[in-house]
Amino acid sequence: MVTVGAGSAGAVVANRLSENSDFQVLLLEAGGDETRFTDTPAFSLSLIGTEIDWNYTVDSSSKYCLGARGKTCIYPRGKILGGSSAMNGMTYVRGNKRDYDEWAEMGNYGWSFEDVLPYFKKSEDNRNLTFPKDKRFHSTNGELTVFRYI
């Protein structure tokens, strides 16, 4: 089994696959090891545009990024162990329920929010004081530790 990308999701997937002794697992990451800067969320903005950033941008528009150079938004994505979490202040974001439901409506069966929610919960080790009490949406048993710094 090959897992491409050693970000939050890729690391959890590779770890879960490695639990099966019938599998040999290779985790590939284009970037290198984390540094003291990538391990400190306060430094996350200083990592944008560096060698650990894929340096993606989005198309220019007359509707967004109007104050940006060329009206083009930067789209920081991490090329490093830890993936984009190493660059985005370790922000944990699942995505928007409506997006998942729209993907399912477009024919991507199994991708509705209700379909993917059990997998979010299975991976999540939520250590916030209030969220884990909501058992419908959160879990404390997964491999991906989530907690609030502030």
Score class of each variant (00 low, 15 high):
M1N: 11
V4A: 14
G5M: 00
S8R: 01
G10Q: 05
A11W: 06
V12H: 00
V13K: 04
V13R: 08
V13T: 06
N15P: 02
L17W: 11
E19M: 14
D22C: 07
F23Q: 08
F23T: 08
V25M: 08
V25W: 03
L27P: 09
G31F: 10
D33I: 00
D33E: 12
E34W: 01
E34D: 03
E34S: 05
R36M: 10
T38R: 00
P41H: 00
F43S: 11
L45M: 12
G49M: 09
T50P: 04
T50Q: 03
W54T: 11
N55P: 01
N55V: 09
Y56G: 02
T57C: 08
T57M: 11
V58W: 13
S61E: 07
K63L: 12
C65T: 05
C65D: 04
L66P: 05
G67H: 03
A68N: 13
R69T: 09
G70A: 10
T72R: 15
P76K: 10
G78W: 03
K79M: 13
K79Y: 05
K79N: 13
I80F: 07
L81K: 00
G82M: 02
G83T: 03
S84M: 02
S85P: 01
S85A: 11
A86T: 06
N88Q: 07
N88Y: 02
G89S: 08
M90G: 00
Y92L: 06
Y92G: 01
V93N: 11
R94I: 07
R94K: 12
N96G: 07
K97R: 15
D99C: 13
D99R: 13
D99S: 14
Y100H: 14
Y100I: 00
E102A: 15
E102R: 13
W103C: 00
M106S: 13
M106L: 15
W111M: 12
F113C: 02
E114Y: 10
E114K: 15
D115N: 14
V116Y: 04
P118D: 04
P118V: 00
P118W: 06
F120T: 01
K121L: 06
K122N: 04
E124S: 09
R127H: 08
R127G: 08
L129D: 09
L129R: 02
T130I: 13
F131P: 05
H138Y: 15
H138V: 02
T140A: 14
G142W: 06
G142M: 07
E143D: 14
E143K: 12
E143C: 05
L144Q: 10
L144E: 09
L144M: 14
Y149L: 15
